[in-house]
């Protein structure tokens, strides 16, 4: 099998007011179904290694986890090479009900923005209140970054992980880089 590569080959920009790194490839599985269904919750927990989160939350640990995406959709995060096995397990666990699991790992790009001004960089691009206390680790937010859809969460108090479509990876990297360019501090937070 060919070697998996991330969209931008792990490009990074460390010169700005926050560090920007493309990470991955990461394993991502979209799971759609009735989230109140016990079988769906169990399957998600087995595949993601964490409990199915509450509305707009994420339960993540390292590269693994489960994120709430919409009232009928979860995103399962795992190591890229573990996806085939987890898919098989999911299919087995969900075989009795109406649900859908799809491997979307190759359709996505993942970025990490870190540093004391990471909030500021994201706030320039997304119409989201990123004030400390309003947005904290454990929350999941689907929104837009400038002109494209994206989702992000915080892995710690100064680090964001951002997921976007692979086709707009370069655009998102450029956006982040411009939003973090040296001298562009706003000192809002």
């Amino acid at each position: 099998m060919s070697e998996p590569v991330s969209a931008l080959k792990n490009i990074s920009d460390l010169n700005g007011i926050a560090a920007i790194r493309e990470i991955g490839p990461l394993g991502m599985i979209t799971l759609r179904g009735d989230l109140s269904d016990r079988a769906v919750q169990d399957a998600a927990k087995t595949a993601g290694g964490a409990n199915a989160p509450d509305q707009r939350k994420i339960n993540a640990e390292g590269d693994g986890g489960v994120a709430w995406m919409s009232p009928d959709e979860l995103l399962i995060l795992c190591r890229y090479d573990e996806v085939p096995l987890r898919m098989t397990n999911l299919q087995a666990g969900l075989s009795k009900g109406h649900a859908l699991a799809a491997n979307v790992s190759d359709a996505r790009a993942v970025f990490e923005v870190s540093g004391p001004r990471a909030r500021e960089v994201l706030a320039k691009l997304a119409p989201v209140d990123l004030t400390p206390g309003q947005f904290e680790p454990g929350m999941m937010r689907r929104t837009r970054l400038a002109q494209v859809p994206a989702a992000f969460w915080m892995t710690d108090a100064e680090t964001f992980r951002i997921v976007c479509f692979r086709s707009v990876a370069q655009y998102v990297f450029d956006l982040l880089k411009i939003a973090a360019q040296p001298g562009s501090e706003v000192d809002f937070f």
């Binding site: 509305q55 707009r56 919409s70 009232p71 119409p127 989201v128 689907r142 929104t143 837009r144």
Partner: peptide
């Protein structure tokens, strides 16, 4: 109403 997010109109 579906996910409870309050946001400005460009998200909608």
């Amino acid at each position: 109403h579906a996910c409870g997010v309050t946001a400005e109109e460009t998200e909608f």
